[in-house]
Write a protein that binds this DNA or RNA. Structure first.
Lengths: 220, 220
DNA sequence: CACAAGATGTTAACGGCGTCAACATAGGAA
DNA sequence: TTCCTATGTTGACGCCGTTAACATCTTGTG
């Protein structure tokens, strides 16, 4: 398989060259604009300039296209969380550092939801492909990049225990508690009763919620 | 306006008599089966035995029908929370009672989500009618029955403060933190990574999460 | 180099959806 | 009784996802 000299080659060609990715890109844009219900196969095809049925050469159907966008959203979310941690200053007290890091992860999570509501909602939308990974807090899958951030959370929680800031018997399900809090908070802000809260009040509520959940996790 | 002797009168009549409620009922059933995306106007009409456009005499369109179902779901959720509290035994220590009550409210919330996933998802689905109520934790709207349970949570949190189990400066946004936790937990269980967790492990995670969030709220 | 075969894209069509316009009927008030 | 209005019906439109049948490009092989 030679590399097609096409891609941006010129003149409208019968074969697109990279239709799959082009469709995903278009679909991501749609999702960013209007969430999962907005990613409609025909519109993605239209915006790429191709017939609707062409998509079926690259996806099993709309569901599979949506799944692709979903993965993209999960990765972007993970990146936001990682970035929030990366930016943190180092501290002398490792326990304090772990606490700050935990809060930062949560902040990055909520921040992404607020800044990219469509993608965030898509990342957690229901899809027919219900083959979800599961973890109780003990078994953390690795490899899949969308879970890199989750791994980061998990490690940070371990650090909390190691530094004596969290009781070991609190450790199991700690990531579920943390994740639940930021996930719920994000959705209450996006779709729920906190939707029309002015930004400054909203941020205050976010900070207070982060503080509360971390307090719960680190209670001795 | 005389009462129509119809309703269950007999013989197929041209005028249904209570089509609006019949459609809502059908739509609720659909939502219970498959969530918000399942409440399709034509199917509701079909199951009532009426033409699709008949619905337009009673609703502005599918969105308004969905909105009706949404309200129904919110009320059912509130009922589940209230029931969980009602069932609690009284305690001598009012502080301890308030703590138990807070946990019970959360348990009732998550329990409803697990037992009625379709209705729960519908209760929180996005609808065009974005005229949501908002509250920062200070201003709690009353009247609307779907918020009765929220009022109950708010009162319970007040009791926590009064009994000296919660620092007053922790009070603001406390309901947001509590709500976020149970909401996020419910969604992680329904759609997210905890979906395939066996029931007993799932219940354990729920209990641990409730404990953690209450610990955060009541930390001195 | 020729050419068959597979990969990739197109057109046409189906059924289902939400919605609108035009028409039909029933029930109550005058 | 008669007419008005509330309520329901039929028919049509454009959108969606999806399938089947056909067209064109690309590539490996003789």
């Amino acid at each position: 398989m030679e590399i097609m000299e096409s891609i941006t080659g010129g003149k409208s060609r019968y074969h697109h060259g990279d239709l799959r990715n082009a469709l995903i890109e278009a679909a991501v844009e749609l999702a960013a604009e209007g969430g999962p219900e907005r990613v409609v196969l025909r519109e993605a095809a239209r915006s790429v300039g191709v017939s609707p049925t062409a998509a079926y050469r690259h996806f099993n159907g709309q569901g599979e296209l949506l799944e692709e966008v979903k993965i993209h959203g999960q990765q972007a979310l993970a990146a936001s969380m990682s970035e929030a941690v990366r930016v943190l200053p180092g501290l002398d007290d490792p326990g304090e550092e772990a606490v700050r890091r935990t809060e930062a992860i949560g902040r990055g999570y909520v921040r992404f939801a607020i800044e990219h509501p469509g993608l965030y909602r898509t990342a957690f939308c229901r899809t027919s492909a219900a083959e979800e990974h599961d973890f109780t807090g003990l078994e953390v899958p690795d490899g899949s990049p969308e879970f890199a951030a989750f791994r980061e959370l998990s490690d940070t929680l371990d650090t909390l225990v190691a530094a004596g800031r969290m009781r070991p018997d609190n450790r199991p399900a700690a990531e579920v508690a943390a994740w639940s809090a930021v996930h719920g908070l994000s959705l209450l802000i996006l779709d729920g009763p906190l939707a029309l809260l002015p930004a400054d009040q909203r941020d205050a509520v976010v900070e207070r919620t982060l503080t509360t959940i971390v307090a719960g996790l680190t209670r001795q």
